[in-house]
């Protein structure tokens, strides 16, 4: 059902946790739909230097959460905003069609965290 990459990120998720005094925090999802994702950012000179996540959800939510943190680290804010849900799913070699809903949280929560960063760092 899940690709090897998905299972790899699911069983060894990267960058799990929280950042103390983060520069940006984003949370999307809804517990009643069975998925919530929270992302924490550290930003220096417009470059994302660290990302951490916490996710409540199934394999199709946890693996993209992990993947999006890897993809975002080292990117500028503009580059990270251009990261799409599609790109995250492709980096995982795809997700089951009926589970795309869950994977869409990953880039969305990154974008939320960036919005929060911009709002708090004018």
């Amino acid at each position: 059902m899940y690709s090897e990459k998905v299972m790899d990120h699911f069983s060894n998720p990267r960058n799990v946790g929280e950042i103390e005094n983060p520069d940006g925090v984003g949370e999307v999802g809804n517990a009643s739909c069975g998925d919530i994702m929270k992302i924490f950012l550290k930003v220096e000179n417009d470059v994302i230097t660290d990302v951490k996540f916490k996710t409540f959800g199934c394999g199709a939510a946890i693996a993209p959460s992990s993947m999006v943190t890897e993809m975002a680290i080292g990117k500028t804010i503009e580059e990270a905003l251009a990261l799409s849900n599609q790109a995250v799913a492709e980096a995982l070699d795809g997700l089951p069609a009926q589970k795309m809903h869950f994977s869409n949280l990953a880039a969305d929560s990154l974008h939320e965290a960036i919005k929060n960063y911009r709002a708090t760092h004018p």
Binding site: S11, G57, G59, A61
Partner: peptide, 14 residues
């Protein structure tokens, strides 16, 4: 409490 069922099933399956 606080964890999603499928993620637990996948871990048990492993």
């Amino acid at each position: 409490a606080w964890i999603e069922g499928e993620s637990l099933l996948l871990n048990l399956d492993m």
